[in-house]
């Protein structure tokens, strides 16, 4: 089903990084909608609210955030019922060069891939080839 339109969610405590991701996503031509959240808790509430009604969505989540970090977010997401989760494809982003973080990402079955920051047009186009 390549080249169909997709929904996007970006979770990053940095306003600037949300803005960058939003722009790049809009420029791909594959964007049906993009929502940005500076707090992971709000993104989680949004996903819960949509419930099983959610359409195919790509999620980019930053690892290091205050209050609820990326790992905590993924753990909370994985605790949701299966039919609430099936629409989402999760990608984790970080500026950290920490091997532990990168290894930890592999432990989460719902996370497709770890991406380095900053998100670039070419990185996103590679991701989108799968959809």
């Amino acid at each position: 089903m390549s080249s169909g339109k997709l929904h996007f969610i970006v979770i990053d405590d940095s306003k600037l990084d949300c803005f960058i991701a939003e722009k790049i996503i809009q420029n791909t031509g594959r964007c049906e909608s993009v929502k940005t959240f500076q707090q992971a808790t709000e993104a989680l509430a949004y996903i819960k609210e949509l419930g099983a009604a959610a359409a195919a969505t790509i999620v980019f989540v930053d690892i290091q955030m205050p209050v609820m970090n990326g790992f905590e977010f993924v753990e909370a997401f994985e605790a949701l019922p299966e039919d609430h989760r099936k629409a989402y494809s999760m990608y984790m982003l970080s500026s950290s060069i920490n091997e532990n973080d990168i290894a930890k990402v592999k432990g989460y079955s719902s996370v497709k891939q770890f991406l380095n920051k900053p998100l670039t047009a070419s990185a996103i186009s590679i991701v989108l080839e799968n959809y």
């Binding site: 940095s14 600037l16 990084d17 803005f19 960058i20 722009k23 790049i24 290091q64 970080s94 500026s95 950290s96 060069i97 920490n98 920051k117 900053p118 998100l119 670039t120 047009a121």
Partner: peptide, 21 residues
Amino acid sequence: AYSATHDMRGPILSVLGVIDL
């Protein structure tokens, strides 16, 4: 060391991202 990679690289990477845009 852990935080330095995030807090110091973070703004740099953001700016690189914006420059690209």
